[in-house]
């Protein structure tokens, strides 16, 4: 039982650092980009500010759409691949 316990801990830690890394990029990085967009809108330089904000918001939208796609895919027992930049629904590896 103690072996299996150690194995469980090892497997969990293995998954955990990946969860942490991905979450930092998406969960802290995207809000920061969103904040930059708001700062850009408030910068006073109307045209450049809006253009920059638009680009930044597109980045955020990409993240949100990927998240949505992932929710839909996982509900159907599928996975999402990000290897081709545009996320694609794939079969879940067995």
């Amino acid at each position: 039982m103690s072996d299996a316990f150690g194995q469980d801990v090892r497997l969990a830690l293995d998954a955990l650092w990946k969860v942490l890394l991905a979450s930092l990029i998406l969960g802290a990085g995207l809000p920061a980009v969103f904040a930059l967009a708001i700062r850009s809108l408030a910068s006073g330089r109307v045209i450049i500010g809006r253009a920059v904000a638009g680009v930044l918001l597109l980045v955020v939208a990409y993240g949100v759409v990927s998240g949505l796609l992932f929710i839909v895919a996982s509900g159907q027992g599928k996975d999402v691949s990000f290897t081709h930049v545009i996320p694609q629904i794939t079969e879940k590896p067995a």
Binding site: A15, K18, V19, A22, S23, L26, G27, A28, L30, G67, F70, I71, S74, D79, V80
Partner: peptide, 9 residues
């Protein structure tokens, strides 16, 4: 992000 990443992994 944490919920989605963890269910992905």
């Amino acid at each position: 992000a944490v919920i989605l990443a963890s269910s992905h992994l």
